[in-house]
């Protein structure tokens, strides 16, 4: 196990040029959240953080990190797949889809 070297492609090396990233919308079903924080930890864009509020079950659901510019949701849907509770999902904004 682990004998072969792993190949990494650094994200920073990809020439983005003038391409605009897609903009995603995040939807949250707040009462389903059990506060496992998987979406927060594993968001590829790091756009989420734990909030300070409680839902009805007493968990802290995620909220957006309010940093404009780089750290924007791109609607990749990773949080949707990784959420064990079906509490979060993303959509790509329609006009941005066109631009892709």
């Amino acid at each position: 196990m682990g004998k072969k070297p792993m190949k990494f492609i650094g994200r920073g090396l990809v020439d983005k040029g003038d391409k605009k990233s897609a903009v995603g919308k995040i939807y949250l079903i707040i009462e389903r959240c059990k506060g496992c924080n998987l979406c927060i930890e594993f968001c590829p864009k790091d756009v989420l953080k734990e909030s300070s509020v409680f839902n009805k079950k007493g968990y802290h659901p995620p909220e957006l990190i309010e940093v404009p510019g780089e750290k924007m949701c791109v609607g990749c849907g990773y949080c949707s797949l990784i959420c064990p509770e079906f509490a979060i999902y993303t959509e790509i904004e329609e006009d941005e889809k066109e631009a892709e």
């Binding site: 939807y27 949250l28 079903i29 409680f54 009805k56 509490a87 999902y89």
Partner: peptide
């Protein structure tokens, strides 16, 4: 059951009822 801070909903993303 905890009281929900509904202001939070305005600060964050979009609230949904279903997935």
């Amino acid at each position: 059951e905890f009281d929900v801070d509904y202001e939070y909903q305005d600060r964050c993303m979009y609230m949904a009822e279903s997935h």
